[in-house]
């Protein structure tokens, strides 16, 4: 129990008759960075706000550090939050923004400012203390927002899509900075995003959400290699989902037959596009070949439907219209239903 930072126990959040979060339970260990990933409206932001105390659950409990905080408002929880829009106070300079929390929590103003200066230095913003937020670049504003969230050593640090206002080019860098900071301070962090690549890159574990429920929880590799549902397979990376049947240790769909252990019956399997190899000559036909710089993507017509195949550029190209055969290794196939 002592190394659990956050726990949800059968949490439900309703807005009128709409259910935003539908009976979810999970726990997050101390020092871990967990991402809530899912399409818009899946309940990931609501879950984050439930941790922050900006929403209170309709049913169930939210525990932070083992304490039930289900009825405590945000101001009485020790959380830090980085908002999508950064939410810097436009009428206060950088130093006032960062020392706001310590001052509000009853600190001495000089001490609070000293603390704020220290953090600002650590995020590389020393010397910009007297600026107004409007006088900073987007990346700098983002760092002020992070500094402001961690200055009080919160039990949990929350990120609500922190990269959506950052240039595509800068994202990789900022994301690495966030990860680095979180490790350096040993913070427990919860991160919300709808970008699966971002989620794979920053997380220790990912909670994939769908329609207010948890679809799967696991490490990035778990989710990519062993998706539990067609939704997860499709949402994280690209996937070929093939419907067929399993009988006697084999999966069959039209002329496709692959080794797959498991119970007999109808099944859906997921195959990643880069795990399929191609050879010239065979029953299938290349419908389109798209050159993408680092790889070529093919759409292949097979008896089991159209499949997406991704091959490195080092292999010889298959022209569109040519006949090919597909090869899939037994371990590269995951049953998702």
């Amino acid at each position: 129990m002592s190394d659990t930072a956050i726990e949800f126990v059968n949490v439900i959040k309703r807005y009128g008759s709409a259910v935003a979060v539908d009976d979810i339970s999970f726990s997050i260990a101390k020092g871990e960075l967990v991402t809530f990933l899912g399409p818009s409206g899946c309940g990931k932001t609501t879950s984050l706000r439930l941790i922050a105390g900006l929403e209170l659950p309709s049913e169930g409990q939210v525990l932070i550090g083992g304490r039930d905080v289900s009825r405590d408002p945000a101001s009485e929880r020790n959380v830090g939050m980085v908002f999508q829009s950064y939410a810097l106070f436009p009428h206060m300079n950088v130093l006032d923004n960062v020392s706001y929390g310590p001052v509000i929590r009853g600190g001495n103003k000089a001490e609070a400012q000293a603390k704020a200066r220290e953090i600002l230095e650590q995020v590389g913003l020393a010397g910009l203390q007297a600026r107004l937020p409007s006088e900073l670049s987007g990346g700098q504003q983002q760092r002020v927002a992070v500094a402001r969230a961690i200055v009080q050593q919160p039990e949990v640090l929350l990120f609500d899509e922190p990269l959506s206002n950052v240039d595509a080019k800068l994202r990789r860098k900022v994301r690495a900075e966030i990860r680095d900071l979180q490790r350096r301070f040993g913070l427990t962090a919860v991160y919300v995003t709808h970008d699966q690549e971002e989620a794979l890159a920053v997380s220790d574990r990912i909670v994939v959400m769908q329609a207010g429920r948890i679809a799967q929880i696991g490490t990035p590799q778990d989710l990519y290699d062993r998706p539990a549902t067609p939704f997860v397979a499709d949402f994280i990376g690209d996937a070929n989902l093939i419907d067929g049947t399993v009988r006697g240790g084999h999966f069959r769909a039209a002329d496709l037959e692959l080794v797959l252990a498991g119970d007999d019956g109808p099944a859906t399997v997921s195959i990643r596009p880069e795990r399929i190899t191609l050879q010239t000559g065979g029953p299938s036909k290349v419908l389109s070949a798209t050159y993408l710089g680092s790889r070529t993507e093919y759409v292949i017509e097979t008896g089991a439907g159209e499949l997406l195949v991704s091959r490195p550029i080092s292999e010889p190209a298959m022209p569109s219209g040519s006949a090919v055969s597909l090869h899939i290794a037994p371990g590269d196939l995951t049953r998702v239903r």
């Binding site: 922050a52 101001s75 959380v79 939050m81 999508q84 706001y100 402001r148």
Partner: peptide, 13 residues
């Protein structure tokens, strides 16, 4: 979210 930021930093209403 500016008000929410204030709240998460410990400020009451």
């Amino acid at each position: 979210s500016m008000e929410e930021a204030s709240q998460t930093m410990g400020a009451g209403g």
